[in-house]
């Protein structure tokens, strides 16, 4: 393997890594917030709001991320990295919403009934009884989504986002060393995703313990 590809282009690789981290981190936080909101929409005891949540999920998760990224890039005419981060957020939120909804609905119905029959309001029961139990169930699928998100950020390369994949494309085009370049790109992704994966596993264990 040609390590000079790595050493000679380390600035570009690091620039790519930085941009991937920025895009992933922002998209992760925003998609979590948006995802929770849509999940609440989907289960709220009010039909029109349910419908809105369902429409979002079915519409967004059935369009390729690549298409969403192009669409945002072309319509809003913002830089590739920003457009890509936005696309990632919108796309991932649909999957996160589904994971959270499934988690909430897997908490036995009797929990809500017990809480409500003691006089707690719906939001109080949700917050104090349902969500703490749902979180434990939701952590593993949520971890999956976060890992997918980091990997999916490579899509931003097609709209010149300047992240890892994009830098890899540039380096391979310039040096004609295609195979080795993408090996290094893969390694940089692993540097991000493996700790994330382990972190989620740890969190899962810790939450399981206090039960």
């Amino acid at each position: 393997m040609d390590f000079s590809i790595l050493t000679n282009n380390i600035d570009m690789f690091l620039e790519g890594l930085k941009n991937t981290i920025i895009a992933s981190l922002i998209a992760l936080i925003c998609s979590l917030v948006l995802g929770i909101l849509i999940a609440i929409f989907r289960i709220a005891p009010f039909k029109p709001i349910n419908w809105l949540g369902t429409a979002y999920v079915e519409f967004i998760r059935n369009i390729p991320l690549l298409v969403i990224a192009f669409f945002i890039f072309l319509v809003f005419r913002i830089p590739g990295l920003a457009a890509g981060t936005m696309a990632l957020t919108i796309y991932t939120a649909a999957f996160i919403a589904e994971a959270i909804r499934a988690g909430i609905q897997s908490v036995p119905k009797g929990q809500m009934e017990a809480a409500r029959s003691s006089g707690l309001t719906y939001p109080q029961a949700m917050w104090n009884i349902i969500l703490p139990q749902a979180i434990k169930i939701v952590i593993p699928p949520l971890g999956n989504q976060f890992i997918n998100l980091v990997k999916n950020s490579s899509i931003i390369a097609v709209i010149a986002g300047g992240e890892l994949m994009y830098q890899g494309d540039l380096i391979s085009a310039r040096t004609f060393v295609v195979f080795d370049t993408y090996i290094f790109v893969a390694m940089f992704y692993l540097v991000l995703t493996i700790p994330l994966s382990l972190g989620v596993g740890q969190l899962e264990k810790r939450l399981a313990k206090n039960n």
Binding site: P108, G110, E113, A114, R116, S117, S118, Q133, N211
Partner: peptide
């Protein structure tokens, strides 16, 4: 509901 206590077949304690 605060004036009506309820006990269920399957307890439904908060785990």
């Amino acid at each position: 509901r605060t004036e009506i206590g309820m006990v269920f077949q399957h307890f439904h304690l908060y785990p």
